[in-house]
């Protein structure tokens, strides 16, 4: 029983991190159709922002979450305005441009903060462990789980129940018609991109106490997040939630029972097969073309 519960909790913990990272990517891809390969670097920048605020200003992790969100949102806003905006009709080129942005971000951090590993302190109040059904789990991991679900709910509410969300869905369904009704598609896209980038920053800040912070940390996240989005379907937020859960439990299980390298290769192969046979994802909301 204990092993079972702790196994499930491990999976949920991995899944909640996946959800945090993938949420931003899913929103950006679902709305604008841009595959943001710099997403992992947004996560990395969020983690470095947490490190910087902690070591330079003594700001605790919880207190720095809002500034980090705003900082990364601003960064995303700038990237959209300077680069992405010009590429909406060239989807292949957005891969290249965002890749280039990722390289630049990585290198800029390496030049300014150095290439060595950095560590972020966990908030004092969350550093104990909690007992659930006989299994112990770190309070911080539970906190991430609830925060991830909370952010998901917030995003869902914005998407479904606000004026902005309504415009967003209208543009996703048919940009031309939506524009002719007076919706400023460009502005909606830019806001979406900024929001997605901010989310990525939050994800980076939240995982920073669990893993070491390095300029290269983003690369693995972008792959994982992309998997979540492909599995979940690009149009459905619920799909993103479900696939985070599935992939989280699955990776926990695979890491427990087999060799890490082969597990990674198997997951990639699964993605290749999935893209080939169901490019629209497993959980797709039907949309009118």
């Amino acid at each position: 029983m204990e092993i079972f519960v702790s196994q499930i909790m491990t999976g949920l913990s991995i899944g909640s991190i996946l959800l945090l990272v993938a949420l931003g990517l899913a929103i950006i891809y679902g709305v604008t159709g841009v595959i943001n390969l710099a997403h992992g670097e947004f996560v990395m920048l969020g983690a470095y922002a947490a490190w910087f605020l902690q070591t330079q200003f003594g700001l605790g992790l919880l207190a720095s979450l809002v500034p980090i969100f705003l900082l990364l949102a601003l960064f995303g806003w700038l990237i959209e305005a300077l680069v992405i905006r010009h590429l909406y009709d060239r989807p292949l080129d957005t891969i290249l441009a965002t890749w280039g942005i990722g390289v630049m971000a990585q290198q800029a951090i390496r030049l300014t903060a150095g290439g060595e590993l950095r560590y972020v302190q966990m908030p004092e109040s969350l550093s104990q462990s909690v007992n659930i059904l006989g299994a112990t789990d770190s309070a911080y991991r539970l906190f991430i789980l609830f925060l991830a679900l909370g952010l998901f709910a917030l995003t869902w509410a914005i998407y479904r129940h606000t004026n902005f969300g309504l415009k967003l869905r209208a543009i996703t369904q048919n940009r031309a018609v939506a524009s002719s009704f007076g919706i400023n598609a460009g502005r909606i896209y830019r806001t979406t991109f900024a929001y997605g980038a901010g989310m990525a920053g939050l994800a980076g800040a939240l995982v920073s106490p669990l893993k070491s912070v390095s300029p290269e940390m983003g690369t693995t996240y972008v792959v994982d997040a992309f998997m979540v989005v492909v599995l979940g379907g690009t149009q459905s937020l619920m799909g993103t939630l479900a696939s985070s859960g599935i992939l989280g439990e699955l990776s926990g299980y695979l890491a427990f029972y087999s060799n890490d390298t082969i597990a990674k290769a198997l997951v990639l192969l699964a993605i290749i097969v999935l893209i080939r046979f169901r490019p629209q994802g497993l959980f797709t909301a039907r949309l009118r073309a």
Binding site: P91, L92, T261, A265, I275, P279
Partner: peptide, 29 residues
């Protein structure tokens, strides 16, 4: 595998990337 399924553009690009990483992982393993 890819073109018979009419996979194009971005998706084909991602598949080529994933395939390369798979081969690299196997060689390392």
């Amino acid at each position: 595998f890819v073109f018979k399924g009419r996979v194009t553009g971005v998706y084909a690009a991602i598949i080529t990337l994933a395939a390369m990483v798979v081969v690299q992982l196997i060689i390392i393993d």
